[in-house]
Simulated scan of single mutants.
Amino acid sequence: MANLSLILSGNDSFGFSTNKTFLQTTLARGLNWTFLPVFSLTILILALLTNGTVLSLFLRNRSLCTAFNIYLINLLIANVLNMLTQVPVFLLNALAGDTWWTGHMTCNLYLYGFIFQTTILQAIMSNSHVLITVNRLWAVLMPLSYRRHHTRGTAFFLCAFMWIWVHAFKMAYLIRDALYFRPPEGQFGCNYNRPAQQGMALVNQYLIFNVPLASMILAYPVICYRQWKRSRRAIVAPQEMQQMRTANTAVTSQHEKTLENPATGTVAGRSMRPTKKPKRKSQAFLVLTCVTISMVVAWLPSIVYYTIILHRKVNWPGFQQAATVLWYVESVIDPVLFTCAVTDLRNEFRRLIRI
């Protein structure tokens, strides 16, 4: 995913030096509050506020932690971790005026959280979106299997497996870079040596980002079609049952009246208990729609751009800036969309703001 420093520098490096004399001069004349640090600080505050608020709603009401909502919690946690590992470190160095002064270890943390399309936490965020699509695909294609086997434990397992799977690919890339290929921060700033592992970079890009996003986009029409067929069956079945009941009403109504026991309130040995309330309609499909739209709008431009630069050198600063801004805004918008889409979550938020 795009590095924010590229918005100003317009090149393929982080552009942070570690010249401490320059750092002292910069700090002496004041912090460099340009667009970049102001924007990143604003996004950090908003992302922590929106994601943190929705996570607190799940903690306040454990009944919200359904099997499906586990995927939402997983995505919110990934958003928070990505913001905490990337933005503060970047902000400290950006305020010093393109000076990387926080050292080698923070550079490793920074690259762990945010280096083009090879970042671990961004890969987890992307694949957390995809898990929601996989869940819905399972639900509509194999509904019996889904109802039988999909539990909170299953959701936890799938989320944990996704974290391990992404780390297995990404950490191999980052560890090799840190041990053998990383250019010295003092001379080249906080960066990674992409050409030294071009083959692995391509595998990571396609396997972790491109294929999951393409699968998500292709699966959505299938899910829409199966959802439509299910809704049609739900409409037709009650109509057929109603016709059968109407045909039998004339015969049974008088008979049941004669057998009614006023003392016990029973009819022909059957208890006259109130019928169960209809099951609330799931909002999972609405959540899936929100997630799919946000992925297409916010992630697709960046994924396309960073796939292209793996194959050829291009310089599209305007496109890159727009793609980066969209991705950052998406981290803020996701929890808002979830709250609007899930009725129970929205009701819990209303109770929270009344306090």
Rank of each mutant, 00 (worst) to 15 (best):
L4T: 13
I7A: 08
G10R: 07
F22Y: 10
L27E: 06
W33F: 11
L36R: 06
S40T: 14
L41D: 08
L48P: 05
L49Y: 13
T53H: 11
V54T: 11
I73N: 03
I77Y: 06
I77C: 08
N79E: 09
N79V: 06
V80K: 02
V80P: 04
L81Y: 05
W100K: 00
G103E: 00
T106W: 13
C107E: 02
L111H: 04
F116A: 09
A123I: 04
I124M: 01
N127M: 07
S128Q: 07
V130H: 12
L131N: 05
L137A: 07
W138A: 08
M142K: 12
P143N: 03
S145I: 03
R148T: 12
G153D: 11
A160W: 12
A160H: 08
A160E: 00
F161P: 07
M162I: 07
W165C: 13
A172G: 02
I175W: 03
Y180H: 09
P183D: 03
Q187S: 14
N191Q: 15
Q198L: 15
M200K: 11
F209Y: 14
V211T: 07
A214E: 02
A214S: 09
I217Y: 01
L218W: 05
Y225G: 00
K229C: 14
S231E: 15
S231I: 08
R232Q: 15
A234Q: 11
P238Q: 04
M244Q: 13
N248E: 14
N248D: 12
T249G: 05
V251S: 09
Q254D: 15
E260K: 12
N261C: 10
L300I: 04
P301L: 00
Y305I: 04
L310D: 04
V314R: 01
N315K: 08
Q321Y: 10
T324Q: 04
T324V: 11
F349M: 10
R350V: 09
I355G: 10
